[in-house]
């Protein structure tokens, strides 16, 4: 074969190999996962809802599924839909809070990490937060928790989209500044 053809062939071969390698790696943020992820790895009750501890504080175990759901755009998007369908807006509005506390600020009574938010949804909390364990499947609770994290800018970048259909009830999620959660011991 002629030498320019050989050169083109080699270059095409490299390009194809590169594409296949990229395909194998994929992009975690963009993956659409519908199948269930299986049972949780952290035992229930291991999540702390307060910061008061005797001696040196132990960290809350970090659930890898929490990171996974937070970093995936599809899950955050599903969480946004479920937040509306399961009537979270009824108490929390679109993050600004109404009869329930605001979810888009830095104040969290029972912790603002995704594991703590997941625990709050599952277990319920005093003064009106229902317990959704056995009602909303576990994966869907993670999706809602991931969405809630984006309201305060705490999800990885580029996961949350900026647009929102319907009335503009909250700032675009891609433009929200990051507000690191602070657990307050308020008993209002």
């Amino acid at each position: 074969m002629c030498s320019p053809c050989r050169r083109i062939e080699r270059r095409a071969g490299f390009a194809l190999a590169a594409l296949l390698a990229l395909a194998a790696v994929g992009c975690e943020r963009e993956r659409r996962e519908y199948a269930s992820k299986g049972p949780p790895t952290t035992p229930p009750g291991a999540v702390r809802v307060g910061t008061l501890q005797p001696g040196t504080p132990l960290p809350t175990p970090s659930e890898p599924r929490g990171r996974h759901f937070e970093g995936n755009a599809y899950h955050v998007n599903q969480g946004q839909q479920l937040y509306k369908w399961f009537n979270c807006t009824g108490c929390h509005a679109n993050g600004g809070g109404a009869i329930g506390p605001a979810l888009m600020d830095a104040q969290w009574r029972y912790g603002g990490s995704i594991e703590q938010i997941h625990a709050s949804i599952m277990q319920g909390r005093p003064n009106g937060m229902p317990s959704f364990a056995g009602k909303i499947p576990d994966d869907q609770v993670w999706q809602i928790a991931a969405y809630v994290r984006t309201m305060s800018g705490n999800a990885p970048k580029y996961v949350a989209g900026g647009g929102r259909q319907g009335m503009a009830v909250a700032p675009p999620l891609s433009r929200v500044p990051r507000l690191k959660p602070k657990t307050t011991e308020s008993s209002q």
Binding site: R29, E30, A73, N77, Q81, Y158, G161, G163, Q165
Partner: peptide, 9 residues
């Protein structure tokens, strides 16, 4: 839109 096409695709 962002609501129905998540991510950067």
């Amino acid at each position: 839109s962002s609501d129905f096409s998540a991510g950067k695709r």
